[in-house]
Write a protein that binds this DNA or RNA. Structure first.
Length: 294
DNA sequence: CACTTGACCTGTCCGC
DNA sequence: TGCGGACAGGTCAAGT
C-alpha cells in the first residue's frame, strides 16, 4: 500500500513527534515482523534516544543515539502510528483509530518515555522492522540495488530514460514499478503517471517514443508531489503517523475509478485491466498501445 | 541477464 | 448465512 508519498508523509509526521523520545521497552508478536535477537534489542534499542527520521525509497529509517537505526518497510498493509499523552484524549479526532491500539494487527509496540507509544501494525505480515547499525543500512541488499529518488533534483529525465533501457522488452508499467530503475513508484502512482503521460501501461518500453518518456518522468514527479501535499492515498489500510488518512485518491484520475468518465474524455469510461500481474486502470481513449514496426 | 510467475499472509468482497 | 475463489497499494526467489 504505502508508496513513496505515503512513506514520506509518515516520515514527516514522525520527525515532528519522535526525536527526543527515549525507548523504554519493545514487544512483538511475530519474529518475521521484528527479527532482531533479544540481546541486540536490549543493548542498542532499550534506553536509546531517537535522534532523526529518514526515508529512502519506500523504507523508513529511525536513527538512534546508539549508532543503530530502526529500518522499516511497510510493504502492503504496514502502519507506523504514534500515540502521545496529549494526542490520546477525549475528543481527539483520531481517537477512534489510535485509541484502541494495540489491536490484532499490531506486530511491534515500542514503549516510549512521556507516556507515549509507537505501534507497528501490519495486517498481512509482509512488512518488517529491523535494528541495524546505522553505518550498515546502505549495505543491505535492497539499498544497494534500489534506483534514484525521483524527487531529487540530481535525477534527470535523461538518466531516467537511460535506466529504462535496461528493461526495454518489458511493459512500461513493469519497468517503472521496478525499484532498481527508480525508487518509490507503486501501483497507484504508476497508473496515475501513465495516464498523465497518455501511455498505455502494456506498451513495451522500446515502443514508447522518447518525448512520451520525458513526459512520464515529469508526471511521476507531479503526481508524487501532489500526493505528498495531500498526505498520501488512503484506500484501506494506509494512515499517517498520527492515525489520520490521506486524501490523494480524491484527486486521482484513474486509480480505483473504473466505470467513471475519464477527466480528459468524458465520453470514455475508465477501465480496469491486468498488466504486469497487477490491477491497472486506464482511459481506453487517451491510452493506446503503440507497437512500432521492427 | 531479462522477464514472468508464484509465494509470502490476512482480510474482504462477490457470486453461487 | 455459508463457502469458494479472486483480489488487495510490495518485494523476493525461482522458474523459463
Amino acid at each position: 500500500m504505502p508508496e513513496l508519498p505515503e512513506v514520506e508523509t509518515v516520515r514527516r509526521g514522525l520527525l515532528t513527534l519522535l526525536p527526543g523520545h527515549t525507548i523504554k521497552r519493545a514487544t512483538h508478536d511475530n519474529p518475521k515482523s521484528f527479527p532482531n535477537a533479544p540481546h541486540d534489542v536490549e543493548q542498542f534499542l532499550v534506553g536509546a534516544k531517537i535522534i532523526n527520521v529518514r526515508r529512502r525509497a519506500k523504507v523508513l529509517m529511525i536513527d538512534l543515539n546508539t549508532k543503530y537505526t530502526l529500518v522499516v518497510h511497510l510493504k502492503m498493509t504496514g502502519q507506523i502510528v504514534y500515540r502521545g499523552k496529549l494526542t490520546f484524549g477525549a475528543g481527539h479526532p483520531n481517537d477512534s483509530l489510535i485509541g484502541r491500539l494495540p489491536d490484532r494487527s499490531t506486530r511491534v509496540t515500542l514503549e516510549l518515555d512521556k507516556d507515549a507509544q509507537l505501534f507497528f501494525n501490519d495486517q498481512r505480515k509482509f512488512g518488517w522492522m529491523r535494528l541495524l547499525p546505522t553505518i550498515e543500512v546502505p549495505n543491505i541488499d535492497f539499498m544497494k540495488k534500489v534506483g534514484p529518488e525521483p524527487l531529487e533534483d540530481a535525477f534527470t529525465a535523461k538518466e531516467f530514460i537511460q535506466r529504462l533501457q535496461r528493461r526495454k522488452s518489458t511493459t512500461i508499467k513493469a519497468a517503472i514499478l521496478d525499484q532498481t530503475v527508480l525508487a518509490g513508484v507503486g501501483n497507484i502512482y504508476a497508473d496515475e503517471s501513465l495516464w498523465g503521460a497518455k501511455i498505455h501501461p502494456a506498451t513495451r518500453v522500446k515502443d514508447v517514443p522518447e518525448n512520451k518518456l520525458k513526459n512520464l518522468f515529469t508526471e511521476i514527479r507531479t503526481v508524487m508531489n501532489l500526493s505528498i501535499e495531500k498526505g498520501g492515498s488512503t484506500d484501506k489500510n494506509y494512515v499517517n503517523a498520527e492515525g489520520g488518512r490521506g486524501s490523494y485518491l480524491t484527486f486521482a484520475n484513474v486509480f480505483r475509478k473504473e466505470g467513471q468518465p475519464c477527466n480528459r474524455h468524458p465520453d470514455a469510461l475508465v477501465e480496469k485491466i491486468k498488466v504486469a500481474g497487477r490491477g491497472t486502470h486506464i482511459c481506453p481513449k487517451c491510452q493506446i498501445v503503440l507497437t512500432l514496426k521492427v
